[in-house]
């Protein structure tokens, strides 16, 4: 008990587990339900020990049916509970899409605010873990196309705890996307005094920089941070923004950064076509046009069904691909001290 606070560390999985445990201890309305969440503690052990500590009525192994799980959660929320649903894997959340789209996302609106849906849907997502088919999807674009949902994803251990607590406390539904390949990433974390983090809807600058902005979230955050370190060798000082929350989207933090750096690369694992990057690029174009020195670029997963694990390394945005994109940000056109005013320089 005398160990100095801040010296302890935890994996993202442990931080998520702690967040569930603290939320359940604090609020008896919080109920966890899903497949194998009881005795097993979930296939990723995120619900480890909860059934034992809070009883099977609070952490419930349900029959194996995702629509049934989420549909029941809707009814539980109607009666005043605060369900936290675990979807076992990204691609196995699809059976629940109808409940999600037609009810979870719309219930507050269709009842004029009478029936809010404080439902958290935890979805382990993304690749990079050698998962065979149907275990590595990044489906955030599906959720983002559904008004009424909040879509949140942590990229750090502290956020895993803080954002999950915020998601459970939110009176609106949250799709809580857990980057599978960061489950075992470790960082300083004190379960007794978790570091306070900004709430849902706030992006965070993870690395300040001045040459260009990398905008990312979840599993691609460490990739971008690594790329930013590597970029210093090229003389680029990259800013890295962790969105944390895709809906609501913190446009202000993004735009402030891009206006400063004049260049932006968006990085995510989900396919580029129809992906979140397109939305971000459009908004940056609409709001920062006169500050841009180069078109906004995207580094994303290819527009293909998630590949077999033996090929996934070619699909996932890696450090090199990010650096290549940074290199394509039209640096040659930059206005420099002493150059002739060509009308192509800074706009002010």
């Amino acid at each position: 008990m005398t160990a100095a606070v801040g010296q302890q560390s935890a994996t993202m999985a442990q931080a998520l587990n702690r967040a569930l445990r603290d939320a359940m201890a604090e609020d008896p309305a919080v109920h966890v339900l899903g497949e194998d969440v009881g005795a097993l503690g979930g296939v990723f052990r995120i619900t480890d020990g909860l059934a034992k500590e809070f009883g099977e009525d609070r952490c419930t192994d349900t029959p194996l049916a995702e629509a049934g799980i989420l549909g029941s959660a809707v009814g539980m929320a109607m009666y005043g509970l605060r369900p936290v649903v675990e979807m076992q894997f990204d691609a196995f959340a699809y059976p629940a899409l109808e409940q999600l789209v037609s009810h979870v996302a719309k219930m507050r609106n269709r009842t004029r605010g009478a029936l809010p849906m404080p439902v958290t849907v935890r979805v382990p997502y993304g690749g990079g873990i050698g998962g065979v088919e149907h275990h590595s999807d990044s489906s955030e674009a599906l959720y983002l196309a559904t008004p009424g949902l909040q879509v949140v994803t942590p990229g750090t251990v502290a956020d895993a705890y803080g954002l999950l607590r915020a998601a459970i406390a939110s009176d609106d539904p949250v799709i809580f996307l857990e980057p599978k390949r960061l489950y075992w990433s470790k960082a300083a974390f004190s379960p007794e005094q978790p570091e306070p983090v900004p709430g849902i809807g706030t992006a965070v600058v993870r690395r300040p920089g001045s040459s260009a902005t990398l905008i990312t979230y979840g599993p691609s955050l460490p990739v971008c941070l690594e790329a930013a370190e590597a970029a210093t060798a090229e003389g680029w000082d990259l800013e890295v923004i962790d969105l944390r929350s895709l809906m609501p989207l913190d446009e202000e933090t993004v735009c402030a950064s891009v206006r400063r750096t004049g260049r932006a690369v968006i990085v995510h694992e989900a396919s580029g076509f129809g992906g979140p990057g397109g939305e971000l690029a459009a908004r940056i174009g609409e709001r920062c046009f006169h500050y841009l020195q180069a078109p906004v670029l995207r580094v994303t997963g290819f527009d293909i069904p998630y590949p077999p694990p033996m090929l996934e390394k070619h699909h996932l945005p890696g450090v090199d691909r990010v650096l290549d994109a940074v290199a394509r940000l039209q640096w040659e056109s930059e206005w420099t001290e002493g150059s002739e005013g060509s009308g192509r320089g800074w706009p002010w």
Partner: peptide, 22 residues
């Protein structure tokens, strides 16, 4: 709420009844 997507109201009824029993 009156439900139009067929049968989707049934799991809600189950969840609500379950919550009430709990």
């Amino acid at each position: 709420p009156l439900c139009t997507p067929l049968a989707t109201q049934l799991p809600h009824a189950v969840g609500l009844a379950h919550a009430a029993r709990l």
